[in-house]
Design a protein around this nucleic acid. Structure first.
Lengths: 102, 102
DNA sequence: CATACATATGGACATATGCTCATATATAAT
DNA sequence: ATTATATATGAGCATATGTCCATATGTATG
């Protein structure tokens, strides 16, 4: 196989792929996304369930929002977050499956 | 849905999932793994094709070796690396697909 | 308008990560 | 043994990341 025969990835593609996996590479975000894949949650609920500070959760949600991986709806003072990217959840669940069954 | 109804992830699972995605989160490793998914390569070839230093490539291969994502065979002075985890390659290719077709 | 509650955000700090540089190891050939 | 080639590795450094702390913003209620 010669060098010319490679199918190279566009650097834009590489950056996007990297971005997806970076999100999924942090234990906290894994927990948040997995939780949200099961049910819509408000911020304090996430913080309590995952035993994290409100601030830490909010910072992570901010990131997930910017990347369009979660969305939210408001109900009074409360924001309910939920998943907004089925494909990323699919990647996550596959990895979980793989990790659990070794 | 009550807190008790959640199916929680074991912390060991979370760590393993995180480990998988951390590997895939770096552009350099994405390129290396994608290249190796196409053909078996020796270290210098990888360095040339990806325009990286031999040292940088070798460090990354060391990591990928420790995580059993790549294997190698020796031919004289030369080491030929190839992929050794089909599941991780599958995750990578899905993400590439997703990133390319937006 | 004052207060309380829910969430967001900016700055600081500690840790992790990936690269470079220099050097070590391994193998082959002379 | 000496030299050349291929790869590995340790130390150091610059950048990125995730959390805490303090504070700001937004919304409802009295």
């Amino acid at each position: 196989m010669k060098t010319e025969d490679h199918s190279f990835l566009k650097s834009e593609t590489i950056e996007n792929v990297s971005r997806i996996f970076k999100v999924l590479a942090d234990p906290t975000r894994i927990k948040i996304l997995y939780l949200l894949s099961q049910e819509e949650c408000n911020v304090n609920h996430i913080a309590e369930v995952l035993e994290m500070s409100q601030s830490a959760v909010s910072h992570q949600l901010s990131m997930l929002r910017n990347l369009r991986l979660v969305k939210y709806r408001r109900e009074g003072k409360t924001l309910f977050y939920s998943c907004d990217d089925e494909h990323v959840i699919s990647l996550l669940k596959q990895a979980i499956d793989h990790a659990e069954h070794h």
